[in-house]
């Protein structure tokens, strides 16, 4: 465990001026590339259009639905993803590499493909969707549950991978020490491992949340109604043109940015936690 050492932070002070200069130049271009479209989107708005669009119940409902569904998705991702991450970090079993690869698959599948695949499982006539609706009344098409399923599929790898890295950064012997001090296995994980891994886990959950809010492809195929914000924006773009769509887009951007900053602050704002750096 190296988190305990007050280590010399080499990367911050070392480096050749020429290399740093080139890095600044290229990196600066990249930052501009990220920021420029977002800034343009915001400055292009007129207060009137923004207010008018924000006053539309449809738009507000879509934003609230997106945020709520993404939040639920992060909860589900945490409940199932954190245990899997622990298993991948600590478990010794055959086929571990395979399991890790399976977790990464959603990152490589085009999201429309994910949507269609999910439709065949959770849709009206899907292998899980149909029996669940018939016997439990749980429906995935046209419902919040469907939105969460679509969001979860494309965003859960972030939680699993970040939590796994966080767990791997914790010396297993710290857990052993906790056990010898009188804690049972679950208690040791709850009192020691999870708090130590908290920052990494929170990073993963934040990414899952952010990815869920931004998801369009899988959601639009599995669940068109009720509309999440990205679907609503697409709908407005097709039906009302760029001006209204961009106002709604700016609104969604502001909401997601505010939440993203809030979550990052919650994850990092505490005093230093060992196990994984920022």
């Amino acid at each position: 465990m190296n988190g305990g050492q007050r280590a010399w932070r080499g990367a911050e002070s070392a480096g050749f001026p020429v290399v740093l200069l080139i890095s600044w130049f290229l990196g600066g271009l990249l930052l501009a590339f990220i920021l420029l479209p977002l800034i343009q989107l915001l400055v292009a708005q007129t207060a009137g259009t923004m207010l008018r669009v924000a006053a539309e119940a449809d738009v507000r409902n879509a934003v609230v639905l997106s945020v709520g569904a993404a939040f639920l998705t992060a909860l589900v991702a945490g409940a199932f993803g954190i245990p899997l991450a622990y298993l991948l970090a600590r478990g010794v079993f055959r086929g571990k590499g395979m399991v890790a690869a399976i977790v990464d698959i959603p990152l490589t599948v085009p999201h429309t493909v994910a949507g269609i695949a999910l439709l065949m499982v959770f849709g009206r006539y899907g292998v899980i969707g149909e029996p669940l609706e018939n016997y439990l009344g749980l429906r995935f098409w046209g419902t919040l549950a469907g939105i969460v399923v679509a969001m979860l599929f494309v965003s859960v790898p972030y939680t699993v991978n970040a939590a796994r890295i966080a767990f791997e950064g914790i010396d297993p012997r710290i857990e052993m020490v906790a056990r010898t001090l009188g804690m049972g296995p679950l208690q040791a994980v709850a009192r020691v491992t999870l708090p130590l891994a908290w920052r990494g886990i929170a990073t993963g959950l934040t990414l899952t949340f952010a990815r869920s809010i931004s998801e369009f492809g899988a959601v639009v195929i599995l669940v068109y109604y009720p509309m999440t914000a990205p679907v609503k924006i697409y709908d407005m773009f097709l039906n009302y043109g760029l001006q209204d769509a961009s106002a709604a887009a700016a609104l969604l951007l502001l909401v997601s940015l505010a939440l993203f900053i809030l979550f990052r602050h919650l994850a990092y704002g505490r005093w230093p936690i060992a196990g994984n750096g920022r």
Binding site: D171, I174, M176, V177, T180, V192, P195, L196, A274, G275
Partner: peptide
């Protein structure tokens, strides 16, 4: 048992 490990394994949170 009292278990002391390398770097002492303190709970840094």
């Amino acid at each position: 048992v009292g278990f002391l490990v390398q770097n002492f394994g303190l709970f840094s949170h």
